[in-house]
Simulated assay, not measured.
Amino acid sequence: MFPQSKSAIFGSFALCLLSGVLAGAVTAGPALASDDGEGETFAAHEARVVAEEGLVLRAGPSTQYRAIGSEEYGTVVGIVCRVKGESIEGNPVWYKLGDASYVWSSARDIVNDGEEPRWC
């Protein structure tokens, strides 16, 4: 076996370190900042999924919109704003999530961890 040079060992270490940093950035979770569509960025609010069966993410604030994904019970999501939509069990408030896909979810399945998000 041939001995490796110090630069080869350092290069391998740097590559491993960079891979770990990138993996951490990709799996860090929902973004907690968003663009309001007019170029202004604002912080999203954190909330936790409390629906035991999980959360169905939809393309709009109604069950008439197609399902485009889901989140499991206990997942923390970022809320950009809230809007009135289809009333589910007497609650018409839906949240627009800030996970870059801008999907909607019924407020009855999410517990907001702070103050209420602004209206869209």
Rank of each mutant, 00 (worst) to 15 (best):
M1V: 06
M1G: 13
P3A: 10
Q4S: 14
Q4W: 15
S5V: 01
K6D: 13
K6I: 12
S7R: 08
I9M: 07
I9F: 11
F10I: 15
S12K: 13
F13H: 10
A14F: 11
A14G: 01
L15H: 00
L15Q: 14
C16F: 09
C16N: 07
L17K: 03
S19P: 02
L22D: 07
G24W: 11
A25Q: 15
V26Y: 15
V26A: 14
T27V: 12
T27H: 06
A28P: 02
G29V: 05
G29M: 04
G29Q: 03
P30N: 09
P30K: 00
A31V: 02
L32H: 06
L32W: 01
A33S: 15
S34K: 05
D35N: 15
D35A: 05
D36R: 00
D36G: 02
G37H: 09
G37Q: 02
G37W: 11
E38A: 03
G39F: 15
F42T: 09
A43K: 14
A44T: 12
H45D: 07
H45V: 10
E46G: 08
E46T: 14
V49A: 08
V49I: 14
V49E: 06
A51L: 07
G54L: 04
V56N: 09
L57R: 03
R58D: 05
R58F: 03
A59V: 07
G60I: 04
G60A: 04
P61Y: 04
P61W: 01
S62H: 09
T63Y: 06
T63N: 13
Q64C: 01
Y65P: 05
Y65N: 03
Y65G: 01
R66C: 06
R66Q: 10
A67K: 09
A67N: 04
I68T: 13
I68M: 10
I68W: 03
I68C: 10
G69W: 13
G69P: 05
S70N: 13
S70I: 04
E71C: 12
E71G: 01
E72N: 14
E72M: 10
G74C: 11
V76S: 15
V77M: 07
V77T: 06
G78S: 07
G78Y: 05
G78D: 07
V80I: 12
V80M: 09
C81W: 04
C81N: 01
C81S: 11
R82W: 01
R82N: 03
V83C: 08
V83A: 10
E89G: 05
E89W: 02
E89R: 10
E89L: 08
G90H: 00
V93T: 02
W94K: 04
W94F: 03
W94S: 02
K96I: 08
L97T: 08
L97G: 02
L97R: 05
G98Q: 04
G98E: 00
A100H: 15
A100C: 12
S101V: 06
Y102C: 12
Y102V: 06
V103C: 02
W104V: 07
W104M: 06
A107G: 07
R108S: 06
R108M: 07
D109S: 12
D109L: 09
D109P: 04
V111F: 01
D113K: 15
E115K: 02
E115S: 13
E116Q: 09
P117K: 01
R118P: 10
R118Q: 11
R118A: 09
